[in-house]
Design a protein around this nucleic acid. Structure first.
Lengths: 127, 127
DNA sequence: GACCTATATTCCCGTGAAGGCATACGAATG
DNA sequence: CATTCGTATGCCTTCACGGGAATATAGGTC
């Protein structure tokens, strides 16, 4: 059942945090890593897990990998991400992550989802 | 994180089906078993899992154990159950379960959540 | 081509979960 | 008290997952 697959992705803190961070827009691994403050392997593995199950997609951008939520989300996933978003509002962990992400905002806004290098797209793409 | 605990409960089909079945009102194990068409051990163990994590509560009723969703659900859980309910509407597995449950309705309506014996409460309690 | 950086993958270990079988428990009934 | 019924628990095996260390890969730079 597809729904179970989704929940399997959601039942780990790191993955929840990753998904919550990607909701506003795409980010590269180094940003995710910096915000989560988790070791590289950990972040990379959980991203791979999410990728394999279609919860995130990614594309290479020079040296960097930019991750994002897929454009067209299946109904169940969209519903659950919305629910997650709701729950995240009042959760200290997510709030702290969001705060750190916001502190990265200027950089990201200036140079795109990957501030580590030259990039085209901006955050919060309406497409 | 409490949220993760919830998702851990949701990432198994059997448990999802159990929760979906209990949403309208309390049911005894034998009914759940009959609707799910799963072996007794399996049902019982998953109920224990849910019980241990506070997603369901139960009380003995003579020979039978009547399970229900707890009266006051924490915010996150309520949100996710609502989301589950939504997703369940268009899912064949849940629909089939619901159909079998509905076929049990007359019996349950007549004798309560456990049709196997005399019982007091009716389904869909507004409390 | 050598080297650096960002990220992914492999290998290993420990833990926990799922499923099944057998058995235990608790309540009712004779 | 023995039996039966409904349900729970213990034991076992299998398997997936999470985490870390080390290593590989891909792209960029000189």
């Amino acid at each position: 059942m597809r729904l179970v697959r989704i929940y399997e992705c959601l039942c780990d803190v790191t993955r929840l945090r990753l998904l919550a961070l990607l909701q506003p827009g795409p980010l590269c691994v180094c940003h995710l890593q910096r915000v989560l403050r988790e070791p590289q392997v950990k972040v990379s593995k959980h991203l791979a897990y999410l990728r394999k199950r279609g919860l995130v997609s990614c594309r290479r951008q020079g040296n960097w990998m930019v991750y994002r939520l897929p454009d067209r989300l299946p109904r169940e996933l969209a519903a659950n991400l919305a629910c997650l978003q709701d729950c995240a509002v009042e959760n200290p962990v997510f709030r702290a992550d969001r705060a750190r992400l916001d502190r990265l905002h200027p950089v990201i806004a200036a140079s795109g989802p990957c501030a580590c290098g030259p990039v085209e797209a901006s955050r919060n793409p309406s497409q």
